[in-house]
Amino acid sequence: MLVLDEPTNGLDPAGVVAVRALLLAAVERGAGVLVSSHHLDEVARTATRITVMHRGRIVGALAPGEVDLERRFFEMVLAADGGADRARHDVAPAP
């Protein structure tokens, strides 16, 4: 079991790719991997599921292949804070 907090934070592109390969290899060998990160695009490249936590509780889930993950993430977090209206108005629409 691996538990990682922001494992690619501060790495150059080669380091990010290397960490990604190590995680995928660990999973292939049967390891469970839990990654805490706010870099949703990177997480989505290796995750089988994404659980969104805010202030210590689960507020939703995202599918790794889902379109516009960051927008959905912000909507969930703002809605959990009672800011559902802000989530619709403050987050720019996707191009």
Rank of each mutant, 00 (worst) to 15 (best):
I58R: 14
V17G: 05
R29W: 11
V67T: 14
L23H: 11
V43Y: 05
G32I: 14
V77F: 11
A25F: 01
A14K: 09
A21M: 02
T46R: 09
D12Q: 04
V43E: 09
A14H: 13
R72G: 03
V35L: 14
P64H: 03
E66H: 15
H38D: 00
G15F: 01
A63T: 01
L78T: 08
H38S: 10
T51H: 14
V52L: 00
G56Q: 09
G30L: 03
L11I: 10
L62E: 04
A25E: 05
G15L: 00
L62H: 04
I50W: 10
F74S: 14
V59F: 00
R71P: 09
A44M: 04
L62M: 12
S37Q: 07
L23F: 07
R72C: 10
H54W: 10
D12R: 01
E28S: 14
V43A: 12
P64S: 07
A31Q: 13
G10F: 00
V67G: 12
H38Y: 00
R20H: 10
R72A: 14
A26F: 07
E42D: 09
D41E: 13
P13F: 05
E70I: 13
A31D: 12
E75R: 08
E66F: 13
R29E: 07
A31Y: 13
A44T: 02
V27L: 06
S36N: 08
G10Y: 01
V33W: 06
H54S: 02
I58C: 14
S37N: 07
A18S: 12
H54D: 03
F73P: 03
T51R: 14
V52E: 05
R49G: 12
G15N: 00
T48S: 15
I58Q: 15
V33D: 07
M53G: 08
L69T: 04
V35P: 10
D68A: 15
F73L: 09
A14V: 12
E28R: 07
R72H: 15
R20E: 09
E28A: 11
T51G: 15
L34F: 15
M76V: 06
A31P: 07
L78P: 05
R45L: 15
R29P: 15
A63I: 02
E70T: 05
I50K: 11
P13A: 07
V59S: 02
M53P: 07
R71K: 11
E28G: 14
A21Y: 01
M53L: 12
G32L: 09
G32V: 07
E42I: 08
D41A: 13
F73H: 03
R57C: 04
H39W: 11
A18Y: 04
V43M: 12
S36G: 08
